[in-house]
């Protein structure tokens, strides 16, 4: 049976990227502990609206941990703390204690300017993918799918790399604001597959160049990114990106 909790939500309000921003608090009473954290925020917003106030703005969409839209920094951890990686939308109120104050902040990184409250602009990630996160292949032209044999372990490893949901928790957690885990996951996926090899060198160079241009920081291997990644991407990807990049530059 669900228990009920009383918690205080301390949430970040910021009206646009130039605004300084501040915290506001709201008390939530009798929240069943089988409510998801985002549902608790829904309840808070209903109460704010009932009081004639503007609701607290945050990104969310699929609410099943795959779209990568949700992006809240909860009590000092991106997506909140769970045992195995989970996104904000998969965080449930039973993780919190009765009477607790829950601090909710946006991803804070120069690469992700705040749009409003805890909604941030992650279009930089799209730009990095556009720089080279693909194989160039014309619709309708390819050969039969089974003509390319791929060892199962390579396919599985590529699948793990491809699981990245682009939420940005890695950047949010990184003290250097580095996007290496995100970039390396895409580079790794395509580097591991024969389909991605022809453009591997070009891809690694272009994506790293774009990442640098957009002002993301330098990776110092603190591993904070992999600790908070909801999809358990690992820094083995970063090592692979380093290898691909150095190899590509040496070959120039």
């Amino acid at each position: 049976m669900a228990k009920n909790l009383n918690v205080t939500i301390k949430f970040w309000k910021q009206n646009g990227p130039k605004d300084k921003g501040h915290f506001e608090t709201h008390d939530l009473k009798n929240i069943p502990d089988d409510t998801s954290f985002l549902e608790a925020l829904d309840i808070m917003n209903e109460e704010l609206i009932a009081a004639g106030k503007e609701p607290f703005v945050f990104d969310h969409d699929c609410r099943e941990g795959i779209c990568g839209m949700c992006s809240l920094y909860i009590n000092g951890t991106p997506h909140g703390k769970t045992e195995r990686g989970a996104t904000t939308c998969q965080l449930y109120m039973r993780r919190f204690k009765n009477g607790e104050t829950i601090t909710v902040e946006p991803w804070r990184s120069a690469g992700f300017p705040v749009i409003k409250d805890c909604m941030v602009d992650r279009s930089a990630f799209d730009k990095i993918i556009q720089a080279g996160g693909y194989t160039t292949v014309r619709t309708g032209a390819p050969q039969d799918a089974n003509a390319i044999l791929i060892p199962k372990q390579d396919a599985d490893e590529a699948m793990d790399c491809a699981s990245c949901i682009g939420c940005g928790a890695c950047v949010a957690a990184c003290k250097n604001g580095s996007a290496m885990l995100f970039v390396s996951s895409k580079v790794s996926q395509l580097a591991l597959l024969p389909q991605g090899r022809p453009e591997a060198a070009k891809r690694a160079k272009a994506m790293v160049a774009k990442m640098d241009e957009l002002g993301f920081g330098n990776c110092t291997n603190t591993r904070a990114c992999e600790a908070v990644c909801p999809k358990c991407e690992t820094i083995a990807n970063i090592a692979r990106l380093n290898r691909e990049f150095i190899k590509a530059k040496m070959a120039d």
């Binding site: 390819p142 050969q143 699948m159 389909q195």
Partner: peptide
């Protein structure tokens, strides 16, 4: 069938058998 060909060419990591086929 074309869809599968297309997606594999794009690098979609479909599950595979040990022999490397889909």
């Amino acid at each position: 069938n074309n869809i599968i060909d297309q997606c594999v060419a794009q690098g979609v990591p479909f599950a595979r058998e040990y022999g490397g086929t889909l």
